[in-house]
Write a protein that binds this DNA or RNA. Structure first.
Lengths: 204, 186
DNA sequence: GCTTTAAAAAGTAAAAT
DNA sequence: ATTTTACTTTTTAAAGC
């Protein structure tokens, strides 16, 4: 029992020492994704909670750090997709996704699915699209969601298609390629979602 | 109205058994036509049956896993074929090795589209897992029967983890009544 | 934890046409 | 631009790393 206690202290100390690394990694990733300081704070507090509840055992520090950053962005209403966080993390997307699900479950975060509208301002800004296009994209998302089109679909692809459609309707056309680049989804996905949304909106 | 229970279809049955004899997989691989054996990659030898279609994983210990069958009868038929093939190779196989069904995968259809977002909230975010960015299905774990259900926007679902066909029926019943109680099956 | 096997659901991705 | 192939999720046993 003394051995077990010593081991626990040892692992706890190791965790504390690694906390420094985890926080600096979180900061590095957050910086390259232009994530606000307030969100980084939320991510760091979440990482500390994960550490205190021993959720890091068997997982990589970087994986948990990336996952908590991903979760914090969603919680704060400015989500980054798994593709985006994976691009600045040294952990692959699949691992970030499963670590996120584990941490969210264990910490009882009760995360709601991301509303595609949360991606509209940032994507439109990167595409230099007007407020009018943003409003139109939001309208398309709201209307088609009410018609039941959102179930099971990826929020990024859904938002990308709505933005593409809105850019056409507002005569500020962006190509599928341009939208797919900022949303990090394929043109095929935009095409598929776009077709359903246009049909549901009754636009032809 | 079609009863969702009538749409239940068994898609895969996984079972385990054993011949009660150790095996030299290297020689079995040589003599058994169509056998795949790469111990560096996986310790089991893979043997596929055509009718019924299934895949058997045969281990050095003599234990066997059968997967891919569409019914418990097919599992028995597939394993009967495997046992006979081994006997043809002069390998002693127990008379009637005990076959244990370990998992049954079933599909079904609720007959109407589902608002997975509303269902996620209705069933309670702490009781489900719904991450459409990672997978289109909503994961719902039931305590009784102890199975896992994957619900899709189309109203179709998958029930897995059960050990008997009735588990899927009970699960569908519970899911339907829960969704009806929540007013989310309309 | 991983490796392998099968299967369904539906979405997304990469590659081929 | 469409089609094919492949991978995502869940479950489960087996032996070994």
């Amino acid at each position: 029992r003394l051995r077990k206690w010593q081991e626990r202290i040892r692992t706890k100390d190791a965790g504390e020492r690694n906390l420094q690394f985890a926080l600096s990694e979180t900061d590095r990733m957050a910086s390259s994704l232009a994530i606000p300081r307030s969100v980084r704070e939320v991510a760091c507090v979440m990482y500390r909670r994960a550490l205190d509840e021993d959720l890091i055992r068997g997982r990589s520090i970087e994986g948990v750090a990336t996952s908590t950053l991903y979760a914090a962005c969603r919680m704060e209403g400015i989500p980054r997709s798994l593709e985006e966080v994976a691009a600045v993390s040294r952990v692959e997307r699949k691992e970030i996704g499963r670590t996120y699900r584990y941490v969210a479950q264990e910490l009882g975060l009760e995360m709601e699915p991301v509303n595609p509208k949360k991606y509209v301002p940032r994507f439109c800004s990167e595409l230099e699209l007007s407020e009018e296009v943003q409003a139109k994209a939001n309208e398309i998302i709201d209307t088609t969601t009410e018609k039941g089109l959102l179930s099971g679909k990826s929020p990024t692809g859904y938002a990308a298609a709505a933005i593409y459609a809105a850019s056409l309707l507002c005569n500020e056309k962006k190509t599928q390629r341009e939208v797919s680049d900022v949303a990090q989804v394929t043109e095929v996905t935009i095409r598929n979602r776009y077709q359903e949304q246009i049909e549901a909106m009754g636009i032809h | 109205m079609t009863d969702p229970k009538d749409t239940i279809n068994i898609e895969n049955v996984v079972a385990s058994t054993g011949i009660g004899q150790e095996l030299d997989l290297q020689s079995v691989a040589m003599d058994l036509e169509g056998a795949d054996y790469d111990p560096e990659q996986f310790p089991g030898l893979v043997y596929r049956t055509q009718n019924p279609k299934s895949a058997a994983l045969i281990f050095r210990s003599g234990k066997i896993v059968c997967t891919g069958a569409k019914s418990t009868d097919d599992v028995h038929e597939s394993l009967r074929i495997v046992f006979d093939k081994l006997r043809e190779l002069q390998i002693q196989v127990n008379e009637d090795p005990e076959i244990v069904v370990q998992n049954i995968v079933t599909s079904a259809d609720l007959g109407r589209n589902l608002n997975l977002n509303a269902i996620a909230i209705g069933l309670g975010l702490e009781n489900i897992e719904y991450e459409p960015e990672q997978f289109p299905g909503l994961v719902y774990r039931l305590d009784e029967p102890e199975v896992v259900a994957l619900l899709f926007g189309s109203g179709k679902l998958v029930i897995t983890g059960g050990k008997k066909p009735e588990d899927a029926e009970h699960a569908v019943d519970k899911i339907v009544s829960r969704l009806e109680d929540l007013g989310l099956l309309e």
